[in-house]
Design a protein around this nucleic acid. Structure first.
Lengths: 196, 196
DNA sequence: TGATAATGTAAACAAATGTTTACACAGGAG
DNA sequence: CTCCTGTGTAAACATTTGTTTACATTATCA
């Protein structure tokens, strides 16, 4: 990735902070006043450079049309279950197999765990698992998957050409994925959040 | 809080989803096309109502000047340590007493724990504690505090009129806060995120 | 030093966008 | 039915804002 000039760095940083504070990106003029510039020209050039170097994306012509590329953005993670007004994105209808399941959020998000099937992996009832949406799961990952009409949280096991879903609790049987099964990995668990 | 009409609910929801997906709020016209309306008038009225009822804040005249009030917004939490370009908000200078410490984020955020002083509370080296910024801490809360020039993570204990900071590990002594101490609670730990 | 690039000021232009006006239509309340 | 409210279309208007042009200033470097 191309290196940034001091000014470009300053601009990128300002956008990041502004975004964080206000919930939307600044206009070119807002960046100017924020950085004590009297003309938009310089900032405009910096924005072009930041785009050329791959740090941001510009939606040409649109107001506040600045998107900081994922890697250079202060990261945020969606927290579910907090939509208390409007038609909830996480509704009762989306509770499948003990999980609160989102239907609209990209990237990482939390799911609330119900049940004791993963206690062996230190994941307990009421914990929030941090899931990274991805269909590319590897052997021994703990994954969220869609299996025969239900969502489930299990460890993904590949052994001797066979695929298994394993609960980390001896109470529950090992599940083998067979040819006729409707199996679709949804994402992998990358963290566990315990509420205190 | 005033109740919303079906249409208003629809608009609020659209804004929330749009915001989540794009990182900035929609324009009035974008809401229109999103909800299959050919005129901006209806949506504009809904926005006025949403503001009057306290669900959103409007920055009059500004493009994309819609802020969803905290309680009605899909919540996001800041994750530190991911600022990999620009002048980092979390810099080496901010690592105090084993914590990555933010200097710019409001509300809740994660701090990375270094050390074993809170193992008794299931908080281990490398975990991320979710901290809610607040100077109002209660007895037995696990808190982040500034004590005599350093930040520290301890359990806050009030007993017989005395204040103590207690490490959840017998290796470390109980600390009593005395009159001359420079003690300032910074926030309370409301969760622990373990990376898998 | 002098050339060149980077950065900035000032001003103008065009597009995007918030806001308003005029009017239409449907449904409910009196 | 008639009035009122909520919602909508269509169109115009004013401001905000991205973009461009012309030129000045500053920094860098051979």
């Amino acid at each position: 990735m191309d290196i940034l000039s001091e000014k470009e760095e300053e601009v990128l940083n300002f956008i990041n902070i502004y975004n964080k504070k206000n919930g939307y990106p600044p206009t070119v003029r807002e960046i100017c006043t924020g950085l004590n510039k009297k003309s938009t020209k310089g900032i405009f050039v910096h924005l072009l450079n930041l785009e050329r170097k791959g740090y941001i994306e510009r939606l040409k012509g649109l107001s506040r049309g600045i998107k900081i590329k994922k890697h250079f953005k202060m990261e945020t993670i969606s927290v579910l279950g907090n939509i208390s007004a409007g038609r909830p994105l996480i509704s009762e209808e989306n509770i499948e197999d003990g999980f609160l399941f989102p239907d609209n959020v990209e990237g990482k998000f939390f799911l609330k765990v119900k049940g004791d099937s993963m206690e062996g992996a230190m994941i307990y009832d009421g914990d929030m698992v941090l899931v990274e949406k991805s269909e590319d799961v590897k052997n021994k990952d703990i994954i969220v998957a869609f299996l025969n009409g239900e969502f489930t949280l299990k460890r993904f096991i590949v052994e001797k050409g066979k695929i298994y879903l394993k609960a980390e609790n001896p109470k529950y049987p090992l599940i083998e994925i067979k040819n006729g099964d409707d199996f679709q990995p949804f994402g992998k668990v990358v963290g566990v959040l315990k509420k205190l």
